[in-house]
Amino acid sequence: MDALFKGEQALLGAVLLDPDQLDALSWLKPADFYRPVHQALFAAMRTVSSQERPIRAADGTVPLTWLTSTVAEAGRHVRGLSASYAHTLIAACPRPQNAPVYGRMVLEGAIHRTVTKHAVRLEQVARIDAEQQQVEGVLHHADVLAGVLGDLARRWGTEPRPVAPPDAGTSAKPPRPVGPEEAEDERFLLAVLVSQPAAMAEVYDWLRPGDFADPGHGQVYRCLGALHHRGEPIDQVTALWEVQRRGLLADGTLSREQLDSLFGGPGAGSAEWLGDQVIRSSVVRTAAGAATTIKALAEDEALVPGRLIGQALHALGPLDEVRARWRTATGRPSTSSEVDDPAERSDPSARVHAALSRSAARQSAPQAVTPTVPLVRSRTATTPRSRTSPSRHLRSSP
């Protein structure tokens, strides 16, 4: 049987046997439970406890009204709940004093599910934004995911800091297929950079080789950037020479046909506009890659929440870098959510309290008690930018 399911049952059974355990579970929320019936029961326990705190009998037993009132309150929100299931929960609890540990299991499962849900949503938005050439939607959902990770870190009692995974330097991701529109923008841009002497200065400060979807195009841009950095002229001859010096033809990175299409004729258009299209694609592509990585991390049940959150924040790091360069290119100011470090908002005392409350049972917890009657011990944008540049109509084929 699923350990998380048994953990949820054991926790609810512990509270039914000892309502005072709710005091040690103040950090747990009904939404942290996976099954709706368990969410309804935990919420009902809090409601009933606040309205009519169970008073123990002289022998320490819990009144039967505690169980019946809890089941009745939960039954108002879910169907099919009966008192027999409450008996099943009680039977599933080995030791009521271990409720904080059972609660930690519930919270850990909730963290994995929450991170997975937001990563999947970011993936879906990235797919839509890629089709519409927009970035605002994907950046908004990336900020939401970063905020969720910070909140989860504080609930778990850890510092929300990026942590590189152990295999960060060795894992190689398969190349992503390059769309025809992405390839066209990149080819036009490189042709313009080679043909227009002043074009490289328009994009050099914020466009990087890694922003190109086609690795070969990124290498050509690297060559042009090297010529610009050294103050040497850029034209078809010097660009071809730099490509050859770097061995890009010899190692098969580029072919003669590719170079002929890039350097074979004059390029017309705006380097700044084309560069904006390239970096927009890079933002969405980077967000999609981060979402895929984070989803894989969240689906790894062996990854403890602290490491999951740290590695997920690390996966969002490249998106922050390319986002900053895109804002530089478009002259957009940084938003408050981008400059606000989650670690700065973290309250160390709150994190310590969260960690301690999850890690140990109450020292003064009474021994397990039984209800007064015999119980059977059975077992939840903006308008798309036009694809056509005013200057693209003036281009000649590369």
Rank of each mutant, 00 (worst) to 15 (best):
T380R: 11
V373I: 13
S378C: 03
R351V: 05
P374L: 11
A381Q: 10
A365F: 06
R377Q: 02
V352F: 04
H353G: 11
Q367S: 15
S359R: 10
T382H: 13
A361F: 01
A350Q: 08
P371G: 02
A365E: 06
T382S: 14
T370Y: 07
S378A: 06
P374A: 12
L375P: 00
V369W: 04
T370H: 11
T382L: 12
A350S: 06
A368C: 08
A355Q: 13
R358A: 14
A361D: 05
A355V: 10
A360C: 06
L356V: 15
S364K: 07
R377H: 00
T370L: 14
V369Q: 09
A368G: 11
S364V: 07
R362T: 09
R377S: 00
Q363L: 15
Q367F: 09
A368W: 02
V376A: 03
R377I: 01
T370F: 14
L375W: 01
Q363F: 14
H353C: 07
T372I: 10
V376F: 00
R351W: 00
R362S: 11
V352C: 03
R379C: 01
S359N: 08
V352G: 02
V369I: 05
T380E: 04
R358T: 06
S364P: 01
P371A: 01
R358S: 09
L375T: 03
P371W: 00
A365H: 08
V376W: 01
Q363C: 05
A360S: 09
S378E: 05
R362H: 06
P371Y: 01
P374E: 09
R379K: 04
H353K: 09
T382Y: 07
V369T: 12
V376T: 07
L356W: 11
T372P: 02
P366C: 02
R351G: 04
S357C: 07
P374N: 06
A381G: 15
R377A: 02
R377W: 02
A360W: 08
S364I: 06
A381P: 13
A368E: 15
P371E: 02
A361T: 10
A368S: 13
T370P: 01
T372C: 07
V373S: 11
S357M: 15
V369G: 14
A361C: 07
R379I: 03
V369R: 14
R362D: 10
A354S: 14
S357I: 12
A368V: 14
T380W: 07
A360Q: 11
A350K: 07
T370E: 04
A355I: 10
R358H: 07
S357Q: 13
A365P: 05
T382V: 12
T370A: 13
V352T: 14
V373H: 11
A350R: 12
V373E: 10
R351K: 05
A365C: 08
P374G: 08
R377C: 00
L375H: 01
R358I: 05
A381K: 07
L356T: 11
T380A: 13
V373M: 10
P374Q: 03
A350M: 03
T380I: 08
P374W: 05
Q367E: 15
